[in-house]
Design a protein around this nucleic acid. Structure first.
Lengths: 104, 104
DNA sequence: TATAAAAGTAAATTAAAATTAACTTATATG
DNA sequence: CATATAAGTTAATTTTAATTTACTTTTATA
């Protein structure tokens, strides 16, 4: 089971800048993180698309921050490149608040 | 512009348990957080679906953790209920590492 | 315990995302 | 600067998510 991304043998891929992951979430921020990860690993769009069995146009949509994509495809790409989500509850108080009605 | 969710006038909605958001991400964890938020706000599936202009079956798919949903629909629901993502780079070192090839 | 509201399911249809294949544009590097 | 490789686009087609409508099941509560 060698499932880890391996560098391609082709031409060099220009590495792009990793965005600040502390910034507020946006699909564009996520897209930039994905591109940065992929280029950092020196993988081409074709390679990643072929490996994950998704089409290149779909991968490009994801790397453009288009939200009209299937969640499953986005998660496939993220997992492969070593990215993940954390769910944030933007309640004024960051401490989980519980009362008789449950959590909210 | 009153865009905030307001409680329905109908029957009581059983509040569900908020999952531990510190746990590793999964669509099921996210689904549980969404249901917990919605029920905490005493909103019905029909209310939320109607308000966000998405169908009830789609909202139910989201609340079941089905990843075969459009990212745009998931984000709509999350934003409305006060949930958001943080992007995590699972690199051994949590500190951003930079070399001549860029970030990775 | 009857019942009304909410949750959830199902099937047919519609809308749109994903694929395919071929193409154009951009860019490293020899 | 020539050229091979990667990036990105486009249009036609296929696949599938989303919607609609109606129905069944579950669950609070009067």
């Amino acid at each position: 089971m060698n499932n880890a991304p391996k560098a391609g043998t082709g031409r060099a891929v220009k590495a792009t800048q990793m965005p600040d992951l502390a910034d507020k979430f946006s699909t564009l921020q996520l897209a930039k993180a994905i591109t940065a990860k992929r280029t950092g690993l020196k993988l081409t769009l074709d390679e990643v698309a072929r490996t994950l069995v998704i089409s290149k146009p779909t991968l490009i949509k994801i790397e453009k921050g288009d939200s009209n994509v299937k969640l499953a495809n986005l998660l496939k790409v993220m997992e492969y490149l070593g990215l993940s989500f954390s769910v944030i509850s933007d309640d004024e108080n960051n401490i989980s608040e519980v009362n008789d009605d449950g959590w909210f």
